[in-house]
């Protein structure tokens, strides 16, 4: 939860401050949308090429065509944070990206979608792959705006639960009889 809020604040800061990649005072690598609608600045533990390649990799791992890159960018932000707090992780990620680039003697980012997939399949048993995958499966799917994409509403207690908000609103199947599913008690 803390991570999500921090990410949001940082993005809002970059949006509202009018800073762009060119004008920012940060020297650290930055993940940005093509139209500069958003930006995530990183710590510097990972270089720009590593960060860009990881961004592409995490999208290949869990490809949701209707999810914008920013949500994958927050995964890279988590990887960057892990790299900053642990040199071993930084090395694992940087070396892993080098292997992605070397697999077919062409930078991973320059490969076609199909070749990128092939390279990832070939590395799926590596510690690098598992670090990125296991981070992504938690980080990508633990973002509130991503939940909206999947139709998940998140916390319900602040809204009184679903007792009066559709816990039983499915109408395309027959209603179970009261003996199987009694009416709610008022």
């Amino acid at each position: 939860m803390e991570r999500r809020i921090k990410g949001m604040n940082r993005r809002q800061f970059l949006q509202t401050s009018g800073l762009t990649a060119a004008g920012t005072a940060f020297a650290a690598p930055l993940l940005t949308a093509a139209d500069r609608a958003w930006a995530i600045e990183l710590s510097g533990a990972l270089d720009q090429h590593t960060a860009d390649t990881l961004l592409k990799m995490v999208r290949r791992l869990y490809p949701h065509s209707t999810l914008s890159d920013i949500y994958y960018g927050y995964v890279v932000e988590d990887l960057d944070r892990a790299a900053k707090s642990d040199e071993q992780v930084a090395k694992l990620l940087k070396d892993g990206v080098k292997k992605l680039d070397r697999a077919l003697q062409i930078d991973f980012l320059d490969l076609s979608d199909g070749y990128q997939l092939k390279v990832l399949e070939g590395m799926s048993d590596s510690a690098f792959f598992e670090k990125v995958r296991s981070t992504t499966i938690v980080s990508l799917y633990n973002q509130e705006l991503v939940w909206r994409h999947f139709g998940y509403e998140g916390a319900s207690y602040p809204y009184g639960g679903y007792i009066n908000r559709g816990f039983d609103d499915l109408a395309w199947l027959p209603e179970p009889p009261a003996e199987a599913s009694p009416p709610k008690q008022s």
């Binding site: 679903y162 816990f167 039983d168 609103d169 499915l170 199947l173 027959p174 209603e175 179970p176 003996e179 199987a180 599913s181 009694p182 009416p183 709610k184 008690q185």
Partner: peptide, 27 residues
């Protein structure tokens, strides 16, 4: 004590299970 009211997930289970011939299906 009355049973709980079934949610959407239960409605799907109930429909499928009873169509399959299962009898002991409830909340």
């Amino acid at each position: 004590i009355p049973g709980l009211p079934g949610n959407n997930n239960f409605k799907v289970m109930y429909a499928g299970a009873t169509r399959l011939g299962y009898k002991e299906v409830h909340t």
